[in-house]
């Protein structure tokens, strides 16, 4: 096995190390970042002692300080270990950083990266695993990306460090352990482009983050029909690359979106809405697969039914293609433990 097979967390760590080595204005701030932040900053405190900063448990102040320092010319990476904690700094993210250049008529760049973790994992429950994608996606002035693989996480973080605007990277902790060959080079993944993961003829499936990962697994259940699916990774949810989606649906005539969060006001709803308004030539009603509109429950006996699985995604595809459903019971490990798959 190549020694360049990295986990997502290691790929993020490598990107952080590389941008810090290249740009002295980059520093990392957040509660516990010197201790590793889920592996994404391991060892960096030793290498950059003055630029990996622990903080008081004061999300609003530490985020505001980072935004202020970005206005003054630095390029901070702010780490919030749960999206819920970032809400304590909502004023600084949504109202200060996102509006600064606009409200001052070109007041100047706010180069800042918000690395915010979506805490999907067994036992985390209603207040530790919210996936508030659409909240961030709906605010003008933020660029919002959601990596679905180690190599993508690295390239997006490097691109974010080159950008002069606030970039939010919503990281599904569910994917921290998946592995992939990652180039050692300092490469960038564009912050505003969807990626066609697989070309196909009869149905367009759109996902992002852990939903994209699960959709990818679902394709393996489709046998000969796999090749009929065009799989699109949104990569960015602010802006959404509608042109890529519409071009695909124009070809396939069918659209399925997958969200690993509540369906109401979801990214999938936005994708379907824009596609419907663009006269892309549907042959069947578009469909959105998402979690039910209730909080994510804590016990595995309930959360099993909350997240879309590769089986529910595969069955939605099969139904839309007029094919019989499959019946497959997933083992406990696959339903509730974060994957360690190599892509």
């Amino acid at each position: 096995m190549s020694d360049r097979i990295l986990k997502t967390a290691d790929a993020i760590r490598e990107a952080t190390d590389q941008v810090m080595a290249k740009d002295p204005s980059v520093y990392v701030i957040g509660l516990g970042v010197p201790q590793g932040a889920g592996g994404t900053t391991n060892g960096l405190k030793q290498k950059y002692p003055d630029r990996i900063l622990d903080t008081p448990t004061s999300e609003a102040a530490l985020t505001g300080l980072a935004v202020g320092s970005a206005i003054a010319g630095l390029h901070p990476i702010v780490h919030h270990d749960r999206v819920e904690f970032s809400l304590l700094a909502a004023d600084q993210i949504f109202t200060q950083a996102a509006k600064w250049n606009y409200m001052f008529g070109g007041g100047g760049p706010v180069p800042i990266i918000f690395r915010i973790v979506i805490g999907r994992q067994w036992g985390n429950g209603p207040q530790h695993s919210q996936a508030l994608y659409s909240l961030f996606g709906s605010v003008p002035g933020l660029k919002v990306v959601v990596p679905s693989s180690p190599a993508m996480a690295k390239g997006l973080l490097i691109a974010a460090a080159r950008d002069k605007n606030p970039v939010v990277m919503l990281e599904s902790r569910w994917l921290y352990g998946i592995k992939e060959e990652v180039s050692e080079a300092m490469y960038q993944v564009p912050l505003d482009k969807a990626q066609v993961v697989q070309q196909g003829s009869d149905i367009t499936v759109v996902g992002y983050g852990d939903a994209l990962y699960t959709a990818r697994q679902a394709l393996e259940l489709l046998g000969e029909h796999k090749k009929r699916v065009e799989l699109i990774d949104l990569v960015s949810i602010n802006p959404i690359d509608h042109a890529t989606i519409h071009a695909s649906v124009q070809k396939t005539g069918r659209l399925l979106t997958v969200d690993t969060t509540n369906g109401a006001f979801s990214v999938g709803s936005e994708v379907i809405s824009k596609a419907a308004q663009s006269r892309v030539g549907f042959v069947d009603a578009p469909r959105g697969l998402a979690a039910p509109d209730v909080p994510c429950p804590t016990p595995p006996s309930l959360s099993e039914f909350w997240y879309p699985t590769k089986v529910t995604i595969a069955n939605a595809i099969l139904e839309m293609l007029g094919l019989p459903r499959i019946d497959l019971q997933l083992p406990f490990e696959e339903l509730h433990l974060p994957p360690t798959t190599t892509l």
């Binding site: 520093y27 609003a60 102040a61 530490l62 985020t63 505001g64 300080l65 980072a66 935004v67 202020g68 320092s69 970005a70 206005i71 003054a72 010319g73 630095l74 004023d91 600084q92 109202t95 200060q96 600064w100 001052f104 007041g107």
Partner: peptide, 23 residues
């Protein structure tokens, strides 16, 4: 550097500007 009306919001921003001076 700028003025911003949300009460208290400019205070951590000012701390950030001071942080850059020191950094």
């Amino acid at each position: 550097v700028g003025s911003t009306p949300l009460l208290g919001s400019a205070v951590p921003l000012a701390a950030g500007v001071a942080f850059e001076e020191k950094y």
